[in-house]
Design a protein around this nucleic acid. Structure first.
Lengths: 244, 244
DNA sequence: CGGTTGATTGATACACATCAAACCCCGTGG
DNA sequence: CCACGGGGTTTGATGTGTATCAATCAACCG
């Protein structure tokens, strides 16, 4: 695995380059409105009239679904290069809130302008469709985790996902800073904050992760494989016993 | 709520017409390869090279995610007018299996041909994007159900979703035939087949649903509102007590 | 400094999984 | 025709993974 691939040109894999290319294309082909979003502020909110898609330039965002009876659910985490607002196309209204977990910058792109521009530059469609397709795949993986993995494994999977997301974007992965509280993580993973805390404690005990000296929000992952290992540990305990 | 809206022209709502319009447009603008898929056969399988999107003309399909360690997960149910294969765009390989739960017909459309055709007929893009956007929204709702609702409410929500899906397509909803075993339903909802069975029994006891005389696979829903009611019952039992 | 917000850890409770038995339906073949 | 077998469903008894409740602790801040 390469690190700091800011200038590397890896085309086959999902490297940092993928994002750079797409963003350069956007800059060139469509009018873009840059916008700073401070921590806790939202890019858009449920019910708002749909007009723009947003591409994340910097920052971390959570996507929150609100049900009619007041339940809140974090349904996605988004990083640099991800598109926001896609769920608004169908109904012409945004279906969820997107909130910045850190100060960040998004590029607003009018959907109608994007479609128009795609007549001249069809690659724009490829970029858009790939973003949507990727999110569909991610959602399916999330559903699978929620349905088939025990709590500990879900937390491990979450850390692995976060580390992978950073790595794909050419960011540091040896020391990651979770920008979410235990409660937010728990909400995203379908468990309580206490369960998240216990899972992390168990991982720390097994040296799968390490807490940084300053704050329990910074986590070191010595070996990502250890996380994958830890996930399987809970999934199929019978197998280990069957060997005798 | 109107029934049998086969010829009705309701534009604002998600009526049966939406599907007819889109399918007519496709017929007119892009080459279509019709294909019959028998019960248990798959439209495509994970790992297969991506080339086509599929639009369901008739039948019911389940979308199954397979993880590297062998876990299977039903991540979606699809009906007439839904698009299949969208998750393959990003990686150029299908990411899951789509299996017919009943004999049905799908229309295969080459993705590259669709993009080309969209240069002449931009409405094609609208149709495609709305389909993707709708699925994203659906997935988020599923995640919310999995994370926040108890087992009974999830089963009720599942029935309501099924009934709504039929209604939007102008099909009968008074008597619905589940084309899935309890085990499949349980897999989709993140619970065991026994829990599904118990939930259905409880609903039948409360007259929220009725089993048809022939087989426990056919279910009558006298009032859909009763399902919604049943969902809330488990969600906030404290509130009822607090009133005294 | 007290006050607040988030994290950890323990004791207990409960929703659901697991295990097990019985039943129903339906097709097959003697 | 009935015997048989097998897949699907129901229902009960028991076990367990997490939720819930509660206390303590750490960090931050006006």
């Amino acid at each position: 695995m390469e690190q700091q691939t800011g200038t590397t040109t890896n085309q086959g894999t999902y490297g940092a380059k993928r994002f750079g290319d797409a963003m350069q294309l956007l800059r060139d082909c469509v009018p873009i409105q840059k916008r700073i979003v401070r921590t806790g502020e939202s890019v858009y909110q449920v019910g708002q009239a749909f007009a723009c898609l947003y591409v994340i330039n910097t920052g971390f965002f959570k996507m929150v679904n609100l049900s009619s009876d007041g339940r809140e659910q974090v349904v996605g985490l988004h990083f640099k290069g991800d598109w926001l607002g896609l769920d608004g196309i169908a109904t012409q209204q945004y279906r969820c809130d997107v909130v910045a977990m850190d100060v960040g910058e998004v590029w607003a792109i009018r959907y109608d302008a994007l479609i128009e521009a795609s007549a001249q530059a069809p690659q724009l469609l490829t970029v858009l469709h790939q973003a949507m397709s990727r999110e569909l795949g991610r959602d399916h993986d999330s559903m699978q985790s929620l349905c088939t993995l025990p709590a500990d494994a879900r937390v491990a999977g979450f850390l692995r996902y976060w580390a992978n997301s950073l790595e794909q974007r050419g960011l540091r992965t040896d020391q990651i800073t979770l920008r979410m509280t235990r409660a937010e993580i728990g909400n995203y993973l379908g468990m309580t904050l206490e369960s998240v805390s216990r899972a992390l404690s168990r991982m720390a005990k097994g040296d799968v992760i390490r807490f940084s000296e300053k704050g329990r929000r910074d986590i070191q992952i010595p070996k990502i494989d250890a996380l994958t290992q830890f996930m399987r540990a809970g999934t199929a305990p019978k197998a280990a016993c069957a060997i005798h």
